[in-house]
Design a protein around this nucleic acid. Structure first.
Length: 281
DNA sequence: ATGACCACAACATGTGGA
């Protein structure tokens, strides 16, 4: 294949939105979609709608909370659930460890390593969920750094709902977010550590400033355009060099029954295999 | 019009989202 279209989307329950998601996949001609907040187990996942549209699915879902997945028209290999060092959260298990939540799944497609991530929310600054969020992100940065060092030259990307607005322009009002999560310095430092590990935001410079990926359902946030940019595709240098275009699909927030997040899309140029493509001199 | 929360489990209302 000469190119591949990759997207990430927090779908906020796949069972309540499968028709919208699959319709968009086909309409937008997406090859690989990373989903977050599927909110279901494998037994509950609506595989049929994806398969009928030509997509295979790999997922990590434990219960009605969180849950991440990939849908792809190209073969997925090396499926990995959770990442090394990811902390758990909640009441300790019998062995004293904490339960691991369904927040990370990795796959390889056409030689590109991709992760679909749902970063913990954090709730309020200082809350145990906030501490967990920061520890989870620190572990992610460590593992990313180690993986990149061990796999030189392999295009790699983390994509998903990071629940962090790294710049003031990524929220509709810094006054509104004063003292709240998503914009606090420790969260922004945790995001910066991912960039220091060797990743870059491959979408930002290709979309307008102030174009958000999330708008709360409440208080007319979408029609007032009071949103946040918290969904990202962070690629390694080898990944970034393949990117030819990027989009935020704002229109998917419109209409009946939308997710509160919209898809983020990148197009990759892949080296053509020596197959059916005529050589052009 | 882009429009005044939504999804889950469960069946009343609590939890979680951000």
């Amino acid at each position: 294949m000469a190119g591949m279209r990759i997207a990430t989307w927090n779908v906020n329950s796949i069972r309540s939105r499968v028709d919208r998601v699959v319709d968009w996949l086909v309409r937008a001609d997406v090859d690989v979609l990373g989903m977050q907040e599927i909110k279901c187990t494998p037994e509950q996942f609506p595989f049929e709608a994806f398969e009928a549209a030509g997509y295979a699915v790999e997922l990590h879902g434990l219960n009605q909370w969180n849950g991440v997945a990939f849908a792809s028209r190209e073969p997925m290999t090396d499926v990995e659930v959770g990442f090394p060092g990811a902390p758990g959260f909640g009441a300790p298990l019998e062995d004293g460890s904490l339960p691991r939540e369904a927040r990370a799944i990795g796959v390889t497609v056409a030689g590109v390593r991709l992760w679909s991530l749902y970063v913990p929310n954090g709730r309020e600054i200082g809350d145990p969920h906030y501490v967990y969020k920061l520890e989870w992100l620190a572990a992610l940065a460590r593992t990313t750094s180690e993986w990149l060092a061990a796999h030189p030259g392999v295009p790699f990307a983390l994509m998903g709902d990071f629940n962090i607005a790294p710049r003031d322009s990524d929220v509709w009002s810094m006054e509104f977010f004063a003292g709240r999560t998503h914009v606090s310095p420790p969260e922004r430092d945790a995001f910066a550590a991912l960039l220091e590990a060797g990743l870059e935001d491959v979408v930002r410079d290709r979309v307008p400033e102030g174009l958000f990926t999330y708008w709360d359902y409440q208080q007319l946030r979408f029609p007032r355009n009071e949103g946040m940019r918290i969904d990202f595709i962070l690629g390694s240098r080898d990944f970034a060099e393949l990117v030819t275009d990027a989009r935020i699909e704002r229109n998917e927030r419109k209409g009946k029954g939308p997710s509160d997040h919209v898809p983020v899309v990148v197009d990759l140029a892949l080296a053509p295999e020596d197959d059916d493509r005529p050589m052009v001199f």
